[in-house]
Design a protein around this nucleic acid. Structure first.
Lengths: 337, 337
DNA sequence: CTGAAAGCGCTTACAG
DNA sequence: CTGAAAGCGCTTACAG
């Protein structure tokens, strides 16, 4: 339908119709007309004309002239889990509240796609770029810097731009303590606890492992190296890692610290296939999914505080910190204790 | 960092550096230089200069001059379930493959937000608009029509633009047959089956109810009106509806047809809270969530074929159909039979 | 083989 | 109180 583009209305057309000039029309449309002391009568005439004719300002032209696009960009690993999708959603609504238009690109945890998306964002002259969960945040920050665009890291920190992340270590510690407390109540204080999922190289996973060990140490427990399995996030990887882990053991660990709902999926699938009773295991998941919580009564979760993280991001955008390496940590909430 | 915008490089700067002219630089950068018989030497000089100086074309200027933004828009109810988030993700990668820049806005199933987002999309001069799961698709289609922009409906159909949706009735029928077959195998052929979730007014829910009834009729079963509960999608609504339903009955229905994973969450939560054993119930969910599938061995799902739906959308964009009311149905896949 | 010029639709400093 | 003019950074038809 309507592929032939019938010239859209411009301020010149409006000026002609209102028997005025383009400058005046522009001022009226921008709300700067009182400052220019344009008569109220003329203003309302132009406004109602714009309305009735369905005028829509051309943002490309406005952006070009103002040298401001009004666009804020975000790159994101993917949409398809609760955490990232709520980041995208809340980012968009906060941007809108500030009169910015949000554009989001998925980069699949791939540094090449991250840079390519950044290049596009810069070509569209985004005013700020939020770099979420990037595998290579510093390259992105450098690219932005060279273009004079402010950038921020979210979820995974970098050294070349301010970062807003979850308090991974503290959160993992609290989640682990909750797991250990529940084991204690059940008189299974010394049962092994498996840490599984995530990437050994990524900052968040390292911190969570540190928090895990710290909590165990506080309870006077050692942590064996073979009980830590950063096998990547993917469900299949977690499933395979658990299968391999179980080959050398007689029974299940008393509890598992699972590093994402993606990994949880693989774990649960393997346990079901192997005929284990899920209800015998205590789960602590560093991630949040209400559907999983509904299914499993003994699942505790660290829910990252997306709302506050996005708020911090916009605060940093509004008032850029003097120190570009600033790291802000937001506490996750422990659910299901 | 770098909030002072140091003038970015333009083709004029490049022309000066290459001792050439802006037109030539533009032609080289656009790849139209062979057509213009620009010397290969000059072309490579300009190209390498652009590279080394980190030139990035200003898309606003290009869009303005070409009268084509290179942008394709999508409005979406929300990101936070598997279905919509994979729509967003696949839409974006398909758009990118075609050299279009995708922008997506969430509109929260709110007709006002839908129109507002459309207005913004049109102001940014999107070349096409995909209207996903809109509560008021026809208003959107009209707005686009007035601007001479092609629009398409996805997931929920409309009358004023071509639509790509799931084969809701056929899919619901097949899912219901799978449920009934399993009941038969368990010698519970005549157990009641509850249909729950969705909106009684929306096209998809109506179609799914029709498919549900049709499958039952094919098996010689009546469908009682009180076994159909289109209580909205939200988990809380589904939970409340199920509680009310159960007040007048002694036992659980043998199976449930649940109209989304959102609703499933409320159902499962209530069953757990009420002390029922989940494994006694057969679930059929018109939606897909692998984590839910991992948890519940007796959950069958109708997985909507997002990949094919998006492909159809782009086909319609490439070759607009003569009939603007064209409706394309894509079969969902039944999983877990 | 290459460049000067016009124009896309706005905004804004300036003149009156 | 209002308008003419310049310019944002490109592209493209035209002239040579």
């Amino acid at each position: 339908m309507a592929s032939d583009s019938p010239k859209r209305l411009t301020i010149y057309d409006l000026a002609r119709l209102a028997e005025s000039s383009p400058s005046t029309v522009s001022a009226v449309l921008n709300g700067t007309w009182q400052r220019r002391r344009i008569s109220k009568k003329l203003a309302t005439r132009i406004l109602s004309l714009a309305q009735s004719e369905g005028y829509s300002a051309n943002m490309q032209a406005r952006a070009l002239r103002r040298e401001r696009s009004g666009i804020i960009g975000m790159i994101l690993p993917m949409y398809d889990n609760r955490y990232f999708s709520s980041i995208a959603q809340y980012f968009e609504s906060e941007a809108r509240r500030r009169g910015l238009f949000a554009i989001v690109s998925c980069t699949n945890r791939d540094p090449i796609q991250e840079r390519e998306a950044t290049r596009m964002m810069l070509a569209y002259r985004v005013e700020h770029l939020v770099c979420t969960g990037a595998t290579d945040p510093d390259s992105i920050a450098m690219m932005c810097q060279e273009s004079g665009i402010s950038s921020l890291n979210l979820d995974l920190p970098g050294d070349k731009a301010p970062s807003v992340i979850s308090a991974n270590r503290a959160g993992a510690r609290r989640l682990t303590l909750a797991i250990l407390d529940r084991l204690s109540v059940e008189q299974r204080r010394d049962d092994p606890v498996l840490f599984i999922g995530g990437r050994g190289q990524d900052h968040n996973t390292r911190e969570r492992i540190a928090g895990f060990k710290q909590a165990r140490a506080e309870r006077g427990l050692e942590t064996a190296q073979e009980d830590i399995l950063p096998c990547d996030y993917a469900a299949d990887k977690a499933q395979a890692a658990l299968r391999a882990y179980m080959q050398n053991r007689s029974g299940l660990p008393g509890a598992m610290f699972i590093n994402s709902t993606i990994s949880l999926e693989g774990i649960v699938r393997w346990l079901q296939l192997s005929g284990y009773c899920l209800d015998d295991i205590i789960f602590g998941c560093f991630d949040w999914d209400p559907l999983a919580a509904a299914f499993h009564p003994r699942l505790m979760m660290a829910r990252q505080n997306v709302v506050e993280m996005i708020e911090r991001v916009f605060e940093l955008i509004d008032t850029p910190p003097p120190d570009p390496t600033l790291l802000i940590e937001v506490q996750p909430e422990i659910i299901g204790i």
